[in-house]
């Protein structure tokens, strides 16, 4: 099991999109080692679409939504963040189908 402290990643870069790329690389690294991932959301305010698009969205593009669902969980996440993340994934997946 690999744990990712998302706040550390978001603070590591000035731009959210760059932080999102770092997050994506961490996820890919864990998944390629067949590790399940827990993303610790402690201290994270929000995840705008520019962050999610280059991380979670890219992961969905390349590995599929089932890989995300089966291997990635989120800890210490607020209810609003969880709802928005779920909504994001649903919309993103729907937009892929419509392309």
């Amino acid at each position: 099991m690999r744990k990712i402290q998302l706040l550390d990643i978001m603070k590591s870069r000035d731009l959210l999109s760059d932080a999102g790329s770092v997050f994506y690389k961490e996820l890919i690294s864990a998944l390629s080692s067949s590790d399940k991932v827990t993303v610790d959301m402690t201290g994270v305010n929000s995840m705008p679409s520019v962050f999610l698009n280059v991380s979670i969205g890219r992961l969905i593009d390349e590995k599929g939504i089932d890989t995300l669902r089966n291997n990635v969980a989120f800890a210490m996440i607020t209810k609003q963040q969880a709802l928005r993340l779920k909504e994001y994934i649903e919309k993103y997946s729907a937009s892929m189908v419509n392309c």
Binding site: R69, V72, M76, K79
Partner: peptide, 12 residues
């Protein structure tokens, strides 16, 4: 706005 509520573990 709702009160902040933390979920300890969330699966998509």
């Amino acid at each position: 706005m709702e009160d902040e509520e933390i979920i300890e573990e969330f699966n998509i």
